[in-house]
Design a protein around this nucleic acid. Structure first.
Lengths: 160, 160
DNA sequence: CGTGAAACATTAGCGGC
DNA sequence: GCCGCTAATGTTTCACG
């Protein structure tokens, strides 16, 4: 996590440190790290939460241990016939929210329209998802899947 | 976050709830949610941490507010000439760790070898990254980039 | 921003099912 | 084995200087 400075209008970090419990640091420990006493430290954190700089706090689970060891990226092209009405795009966007297999979905530049990150237990479960949900969807006209065979790097840190 | 059941060997959740502060719930509140007293509740959480089911706790920041509002996915193909020695793959994997712009990197099935998730401030910063780091790299022979134009869904939740 | 005090939470040890 | 109690210690969160 990033501990923001007080400099108004800037969220450049004054201190960066990755560690398993960073997101659950006590306000007291955080105050020590940034050399501040607990009360202004808490006020700053609350402020960042209110501004939406901090969106939420989460626990990161091991996908394998939790039973979703297969990661796929799926590129999708949508039906353009009714582009004027905009239905394809919004229909698909709405339906994606309801599919738990899809953890991320972006509208992308390039040949494909959407990129989906799909997290499932097995190839079998992936194929059920692809056949029953994706390919059944009226807006989907093309689909290309790649599977992650190895994780080289995976972080939530932002550090420049 | 997922609160695991006591059933040995299974991490199927007994309770799922997304909310900004889930990852910072006090042990007391968590205990209430799962109808347990604080001490066994804490013991279970510690156990999940030791097993590695919970890998870490993080704060999720707003990429725009924190100055990395441009998201790109880059597919990369590596030099196969020295595949026998395995150098390309491991060299690239090592170097990726040092680039802060790359937040995720997977070895993928399909036409491309690696997929990179790149998070930067601007097109200009992206092009510096691509020119100076990616294309300069001796292992990289081909590269295809797509930019995220809109975020449809983005979650860290696992829920089946 | 920091201090202090009340309310609240964490955590180890122990007895019981 | 796993639960819940208790009690000491530590933390959060105010109002106020």
């Amino acid at each position: 996590m990033i501990y923001a400075q007080s400099s108004p209008g800037s969220y450049r970090p004054s201190y960066i440190a990755p560690s398993p419990k960073e997101g659950r640091l006590s306000n007291q420990d955080l105050a020590d790290k940034v050399s501040l006493s607990p009360s202004p430290c808490l006020r700053r954190v609350r402020h960042l939460e209110e501004l939406g700089v901090i969106k939420r706090y989460v626990a990161i689970l091991d996908p394998i241990k939790v039973g979703v060891g297969l990661l796929a990226y799926v590129s999708i092209r949508l039906n353009k016939s009714n582009r004027g009405s905009g239905t394809s795009y919004s229909d698909f966007a709405r339906d994606v929210q309801a599919w738990p297999e899809v953890v991320e979905c972006f509208a992308m530049s390039g040949e494909m329209d959407y990129l989906l990150r799909v997290q499932v237990a097995s190839l079998e479960q992936f194929s059920r998802f692809a056949m029953d949900k994706l390919m059944q969807h009226p807006s989907v006209v093309d689909m290309r899947t790649s599977f992650a065979m190895q994780t080289i790097k995976e972080t939530t840190e932002i550090s420049f």
